[in-house]
């Protein structure tokens, strides 16, 4: 499978010269299968650019939302395939005990927040609530599970036709409540089974170790904890992702170098950069 990062920023789109290298668009990752299957992981502002690359021959797109915080759905209304009559759009998102996925999405995709209502879109939309067990989408097997982040939030584990695995945990705080992280085995760690032995892990790394103590419970990880989580999960390649809007490109360079020098990971680390592509 081929994974492309279309938005790597967390919380708020942050365009400008200081964020040009790692990118200012919010969370969105495109995954393409050898059979042409198209998965879109989250619908942050990066989804607009991804939408322009989907050609007329594509008849089905699956959008996998981790949760419905604004930075993960804000680009949805700007996804070009939504406005094509000949496309099936399947939107997968976390279940809530009180309000359906459709109703929660319509809070954004309706006036006054957005001029076009979900029901007015010409494409054929089907909504699916997750987690719902393993699902086959084209050549992909998709697993999902609730993870530690405020409100219903899932992570995804995607297995390709050749058995390769990529795991997507863009908003995740597995260290919540832990005096020392990690101190428990993988089975007792949020997201542990989703990330186990993944070939590629795209994971939240919003804060520095110094910033994290004043943001405990916000649902994000320090880069230090992300590196430790990747080691616990025994992944082969980590992509730190969901960069804090306050971190410039130079900040991210420095923070990554410092954290990697301290952790000395046994796996490859590629800081999430908009436009980067990974063959898994």
């Amino acid at each position: 499978m081929k994974c492309t990062l279309w938005g790597t920023r967390g919380s708020l789109a942050t365009p400008g010269p200081e964020t040009a290298r790692y990118g200012g668009n919010t969370s969105c990752v495109g995954v393409r299968g050898q059979d042409g299957a198209v998965l879109v992981l989250d619908a942050g502002t990066g989804i607009r650019g991804l939408g322009k690359t989907i050609d007329a021959s594509v008849r089905r797109v699956d959008i996998l939302l981790t949760h419905l915080h604004m930075d993960h759905i804000q680009g949805l209304g700007f996804f070009a395939p939504l406005y094509r009559r000949d496309v099936e759009i399947h939107i997968w998102g976390p279940v809530s005990s009180k309000v359906s996925l459709r109703e929660r999405l319509m809070r954004y995709l309706s006036p006054p927040l957005f001029p076009v209502s979900l029901r007015e879109l010409p494409c054929a939309i089907t909504l699916h609530e997750v987690p719902c067990g393993d699902v086959d989408i084209g050549e992909f097997r998709v697993s999902s599970a609730l993870v530690c982040h405020p409100g219903p939030t899932v992570g995804y584990r995607i297995t390709g036709a050749q058995g390769s695995v990529m795991t997507y945990l863009p908003d995740h705080e597995p260290a919540l409540g832990a005096l020392k992280f990690p101190s428990l085995p993988r089975a007792w760690t949020s997201g542990g089974s989703l990330a186990a032995s993944a070939d590629l892990l795209i994971h939240d790394s919003q804060f520095t170790a110094d910033e994290y103590p004043s943001h405990v419970g916000w649902g994000h990880s320090s880069l230090k904890d992300t590196l430790a989580f990747a080691a616990l999960a025994d992944v082969k390649h980590l992509v730190p992702f969901h960069h804090d809007p306050g971190h410039t490109d130079d900040d991210i360079d420095r923070l990554m170098n410092e954290a990697i020098a301290e952790a000395k990971p046994a796996y490859r680390v590629s800081p999430g950069r908009e436009g980067a592509t990974f063959q898994v």
């Binding site: 609730l146 832990a178 993988r186 542990g192």
Partner: peptide, 19 residues
């Protein structure tokens, strides 16, 4: 019994370990 735990059990254990 060391299979992966649900987030509900993980968070319940975290809470229990802190009080």
């Amino acid at each position: 019994m060391s299979t992966s735990k649900s987030i509900q059990l993980i968070l319940a254990r975290q809470l229990a370990s802190c009080i």
